[in-house]
Amino acid sequence: MSNRVEELESQVSELRAAVDGLTEELVETKERLRQLEAATDAEPSVQSYAQSEADDETSPSESEAEEAKSAEEKAQESESGSDESDIIVA
């Protein structure tokens, strides 16, 4: 039976060493994660970068051109609509 006790004590020692090693790795990983999160907070996010790119692509002259085109189309519709009846046949 003393052989069994020695085996169990050896196994307990190995498990303690494994737990200590894993605990140390966990602490180091958490610290690294905090560092990465702090660095990420300081950098612009991918979403904010994509939004700024989209804002750059739509220039004010394009917006104005689209609004002018829309106004012209509405004017044409109102002119053509006055000549025809308002009844639509499907």
Rank of each mutant, 00 (worst) to 15 (best):
S2H: 04
S2A: 06
S2N: 06
N3V: 07
N3G: 12
R4M: 05
R4Y: 07
V5S: 05
E7Y: 06
L8A: 12
L8N: 07
E9S: 08
S10A: 07
S10M: 10
Q11A: 08
V12N: 08
V12Y: 11
V12P: 02
S13K: 15
S13Y: 14
S13L: 15
E14G: 05
L15G: 02
L15C: 05
L15I: 07
R16H: 15
A18M: 06
A18P: 02
V19Y: 03
V19M: 04
D20P: 00
G21D: 08
G21P: 00
G21A: 14
L22A: 04
L22C: 01
T23I: 06
L26A: 12
L26T: 11
L26Q: 10
V27E: 10
E28P: 03
E28K: 09
T29F: 01
T29E: 10
K30Q: 06
K30C: 04
K30N: 04
E31Y: 07
R32I: 03
R32T: 11
R32D: 08
L33S: 13
L33M: 11
L33G: 07
L33Y: 03
R34N: 06
Q35W: 09
Q35I: 12
Q35R: 15
L36E: 12
E37Y: 06
E37N: 15
A38T: 01
A38H: 03
A38P: 02
A39T: 01
A39K: 08
T40M: 02
A42I: 00
A42E: 09
A42F: 00
A42G: 00
E43A: 14
E43W: 04
E43M: 10
E43R: 14
P44G: 07
P44S: 08
S45G: 07
S45C: 00
V46S: 13
V46R: 13
V46D: 15
Q47E: 11
Q47K: 09
Q47C: 04
Q47P: 02
S48C: 07
Y49I: 14
Y49K: 15
Y49W: 09
A50Q: 01
S52H: 06
E53C: 15
E53T: 12
A54P: 02
A54G: 05
A54W: 02
A54Q: 03
D55I: 13
D56P: 01
E57T: 10
E57R: 15
T58P: 03
S61P: 03
S61L: 13
S61H: 11
E62K: 04
E62F: 00
E62D: 06
E62N: 02
E62R: 03
S63P: 01
E64S: 14
A65H: 04
A65V: 04
A65Y: 00
E66G: 11
E67K: 05
A68L: 11
A68K: 06
K69D: 08
S70A: 14
S70Y: 08
A71L: 09
A71T: 08
E72D: 10
E72K: 14
E73Q: 13
K74C: 05
A75N: 05
A75R: 08
Q76M: 10
Q76V: 14
E77P: 01
S78G: 06
S78C: 03
S78P: 02
S78R: 14
